[in-house]
Design a binder for these strands. Structure first.
Lengths: 210, 210
DNA sequence: GCGGAACCGGACGGGGGCTTCCGCTTCGCC
DNA sequence: GGCGAAGCGGAAGCCCCCGTCCGGTTCCGC
């Protein structure tokens, strides 16, 4: 999937290996440190020269888009699973929860969602598919009387943006805070209410942004 | 208040005027464009040289901290008002709503909350005062049976972080999204539930980050 | 094996932002 | 009004990061 971007004239074997190395390294680094990491650093960690990165991905944005596109596909898959769930409310909760968990665990993903990424065709496609799937899910959950009727599709964006802002001192704290937020929100999304919450998250305002 | 940081040997009148100019300009620019704006740009808009900024505020962080400290005081005042409200739940909602509104209207404020600001004494003081006040408010609201008992003080941080992540294409969209989020969260914080929501916010994932 | 093309890596250029330096100006006390 | 100190402005220094260039190396078809 990742070796055939569009209509590549087939990469030389060593180049293909390096491309994978770059993608894997970038994925890990972006997830851990965020998108602010220099290209040279990624090259260094991948054990390659900078030129190799730029030959494969002409600009940094291209690299980020490539890494991010994998995540977007993951989101789509996640939605497909949810759509085959017989319980619409359970499916709805799963989707929200898992997307937010992905965001919380991957610093780059959050930023990537918000920053400029409208340039890849594949990206647009995945995204529209996800939106359609989510709309279907919402409709089902509302029809079942589980989801409040004034829930709007744009609320998904609000949730994702809000969740992207949540960040703790450690990955664990971030996850905990995200889970806490999601639990509150799902509570609010429910037509009725009343469910136990996960433990409070140990985050502080002093948490570093980068 | 702003002319006597700690134990200043009294500023020359022109210098004091310029200091105010800097502070006002910085406040406006940070609120509008965020913290990413270069020092030179702030100097230009204030009609001053760069050196003047740096003489008054040795580092950019100092300038941001100075601007932000005014906001923090505002937060404290806001809490005092709430503490004199006879209805604890109403007061609680007001505090959450107003703090989030401040954040939503001021791009710099959100970032400033999250980024490094532990360095000013005045800042620490304001903040601790705010925390104590909020704790008091929470206790009252819980005693009145309006706020759920498993609400934790750290949830305020989660709310503020989440709200700081919400950002639309326009200031209006940002405000709308923030209001929407807050309404959902307050709904979830309530011991029971069920209240109408403000209209959905017209934000998109394509919203620019800076 | 061998030749050419694709590939690799480190050094280099360009730009932008934070911060400092220096000669000139302005204020305010006497 | 005069003089010293504080203030001012713009230019220059420094560092970091994106993106490019060139000489050497490795792969792959024949």
């Amino acid at each position: 999937m990742r070796d055939v971007p569009t209509t590549s004239p087939r990469l030389r074997t060593d180049a293909a290996v390096n491309r994978t190395k770059i993608l894997d390294t970038a994925w890990e680094v972006f997830a851990t440190e965020g998108l602010g990491v220099p290209m040279s650093e990624i090259a260094r960690r991948a054990g390659l020269g900078v030129a190799t990165l730029y030959r494969r991905f002409p600009t940094k944005e291209d690299l980020v888009a490539a890494v991010f596109s994998e995540q977007m596909v993951e989101c789509g898959d996640l939605l497909d699973v949810a759509l085959s769930d017989p319980d619409p409310w359970h499916a709805f909760c799963q989707v929200i929860g898992q997307m937010c968990a992905m965001q919380a665990q991957d610093r780059g993903f959050s930023k990537a969602c918000v920053t400029a990424f409208p340039n890849t065709a594949q990206f647009r496609a995945s995204r529209e598919r996800a939106e359609r799937g989510f709309a279907e899910l919402v409709e089902r959950a509302q029809a079942a009387g589980a989801l409040r009727r004034d829930f709007d599709l744009t609320d998904l964006t609000v949730v994702l943006l809000a969740n992207s802002g949540v960040r703790g001192d450690t990955p664990e704290a971030t996850n905990a805070a995200s889970r806490r937020l999601v639990a509150y929100l799902l509570q609010a999304f429910r037509a009725d209410g009343g469910a136990p919450l996960p433990p409070p998250a140990a985050v502080s305002l002093d948490a570093a942004l980068r």
